[in-house]
Nucleic acid binder design. Sequence first.
DNA 1: AAAGATTGAAGCCTCAATCTTC
DNA 2: GAAGATTGAGGCTTCAATCTTT
Lengths: 168, 168
Amino acid sequence: VPDPLPFDPIYEARRQWRAQGWTDAAGGMAAVTSVMRAQQLLLARVDAVLEPFELTFSRFEVLALLAFSRQGELPLGKIGRRLQVHAASVTNAVQRLEAQRLVRRRPHPTDGRTVLAQITPKGQRVMRAAAAALNAVFAGMPLGAAELDALVATLQTLRHDAGDFVRA
Amino acid sequence: VPDPLPFDPIYEARRQWRAQGWTDAAGGMAAVTSVMRAQQLLLARVDAVLEPFELTFSRFEVLALLAFSRQGELPLGKIGRRLQVHAASVTNAVQRLEAQRLVRRRPHPTDGRTVLAQITPKGQRVMRAAAAALNAVFAGMPLGAAELDALVATLQTLRHDAGDFVRA
DNA sequence: AAAGATTGAAGCCTCAATCTTC
DNA sequence: GAAGATTGAGGCTTCAATCTTT
């Protein structure tokens, strides 16, 4: 971790933006860069916690989704839609998880086109251990329950507006 | 853009998390995934707007920083600290900007170790045009000024807690 | 030694093209 | 033709190692 700045670069940028006469867009600009930077920090923290398990947040999400599913297995396409990532990303994540013996892939019994990813017993164990470690991070966030809910709700508006899902 | 889900995957995941008994961490988990997903959507939208200018948000940020600087030039290290990205990312961005003739690099007059990136007149023009296009995106966000400010403030708490800067 | 910059490696993401199966 | 999956390309990020200058 490098030396921290003696001021908030986002607030400084917003000031600059306003000074340029773009006052109507300065708030949006600050919001966008805030989200970008917060994502970077959160991802770094989460990935650091997951590192001992040889997992990344992307792969953890796949593992958790499988662990929560009824049969412990899901078609790759369904995983991608649920996690909102490109099919190529799912292929990559599942290949790595399979190499780690956390997931097994098998052909769909009736549809020859689709591939199923199935979590293994080892995958179940690793997922639980990793989730426990992550919970410490989530529970340790410097925000209260009300603030967290407000944050999630605000970002939900954003995601909904972007057409991420329907039926809020 | 693929078909949207008929439900919010973040809310669904939070429900699952709570059903597993991890109620104290469910809020944090939802907040983290919300930020991740919002970042993805915002970046995609911003990059799409910047595409006609052959710019990416990363490179736009460098260009804007230079445009706002007193002399129109800054040492690479300073750019990295201000934008909070790794030195390697700055090197990469400046190299691309130089290839586009939007920036020129020149040695520091007194310190032989540092390299200065200087915005060119063409860079100034492109930056202004790109900023105008971006302003439409920022101004068109589905959130009011108060909501934007609350979002920025909440994320500022997060960033400050992560040691991103001091002196809120 | 310390600071600034660059290079190469590796991870993740997206898109476009391709192949197989329905 | 449409759907599901995979591959290859390109972009961005980080880290570790290296080189030059202070």
